[in-house]
């Protein structure tokens, strides 16, 4: 295993009945990178996430993380190994408060037993105080200071997005999987979210694997991009390499490579316009 790659998927395949959602995907994510997965709807992007976190078990193939094989583990063991994720449609614990969401995220790092909690042992109280302090810090980082006692469901949309990322960070991951963090956001909010993601990487020194639809985001901050279509990888490289790839243009616009040059140019400009904003 090369030292630089944090996550390695080999011939990852997932079938639902007769339908192959993912076919023989090889994916290598370098430590410290922001790595994007893009592709048209139904390309199998979220399935990749589910197969990495073992929410779905792969039909075949291997997943290696920090030189350990993690396919076949339960999702809680994967989290303990250092992978955490967010969801395309926000999945917070809606009926508890924001800070309690963070505290649940810290579950792996609060060392106390239930009997300790019942007896109120000094150890448990210390752990709780420490967790509480850390949660407050995190709350501050995700810019929700003062909103921590609100029920998660009562937070604004952008706040919920940040809280979900904060909850994922609370598990102290080495690899953070973000599933469309800017979905449903206007350009201004999107820019803020991009800046926030950059800050997350810098502050927590982690690797980010990103599913994204907005080209501006992908081209603007990815170190590397993997393009999926129909469950298979059709291109990979730097944003600049990917946006010129005929296969990518075809997948996005549904044009044959023999199609008129005008259409291809249009597609390239669509992909490229975002990149120029870098």
């Amino acid at each position: 295993m090369a030292e630089a790659s944090l996550l390695l998927c080999r011939r990852l395949t997932r079938r639902f009945g007769g339908i192959a959602a993912l076919t023989d995907l090889d994916l290598e994510v370098a430590a410290g990178a922001i790595h994007s997965i893009i592709g048209p709807n139904g390309a199998g992007k979220t399935t990749v996430f589910n197969c990495i976190t073992q929410n779905l078990s792969p039909t075949s193939g291997e997943v290696w993380f920090r030189s350990e094989r993690i396919d076949g583990l339960t999702p809680d063991r994967v989290a303990a190994a250092g992978i955490s994720r967010t969801y395309q449609n926000i999945r917070l614990f809606r009926n508890i408060t924001a800070i309690e969401n963070l505290l649940v995220g810290m579950h792996l790092h609060v060392h106390s037993h239930w009997w300790g909690a019942v007896l109120g042992t000094p150890h448990t109280r210390r752990e709780e105080a420490r967790a509480h302090a850390e949660a407050l810090k995190l709350l501050h980082f995700i810019d929700l200071a003062g909103r921590g006692d609100l029920l998660a469901r009562n937070l604004a949309y952008g706040e919920q997005r940040r809280l979900e990322i904060g909850r994922a960070l609370a598990t102290r991951p080495k690899l953070l999987l973000l599933d469309e963090p800017t979905a449903g956001m206007n350009p201004h909010e999107t820019s803020r979210m991009m800046a926030f993601i950059q800050r997350v990487r810098a502050e927590f020194d982690i690797t980010i694997l990103l599913i994204e639809h907005q080209m501006r985001v992908v081209m603007g901050m990815s170190d590397r991009v993997t393009v999926l279509d129909h469950g298979a990888k059709i291109a990979e490289g730097t944003p600049a390499e990917v946006q010129g790839d005929p296969a990518v243009i075809e997948a996005y616009l549904g044009v044959k490579s023999a199609a008129p040059a005008a259409a291809r140019d249009h597609a390239a400009s669509l992909l490229g316009a975002a990149a120029s904003e870098r």
């Binding site: 809680d76 009926n95 649940v104 579950h107 609060v110 239930w114 909690a117 019942v118 598990t171």
Partner: peptide, 29 residues
């Protein structure tokens, strides 16, 4: 009351709201 305000109680509440997410955050179901 003590359980409710403990690590285990929070895990339970997470379980109640979304089992899959709780597990993905490291809660042993």
């Amino acid at each position: 009351w003590r359980l409710e305000n403990s690590r285990l109680g929070r895990a339970w509440e997470a379980l109640r709201d979304d089992e899959d997410v709780a597990q993905a955050l490291g809660v042993n179901l």
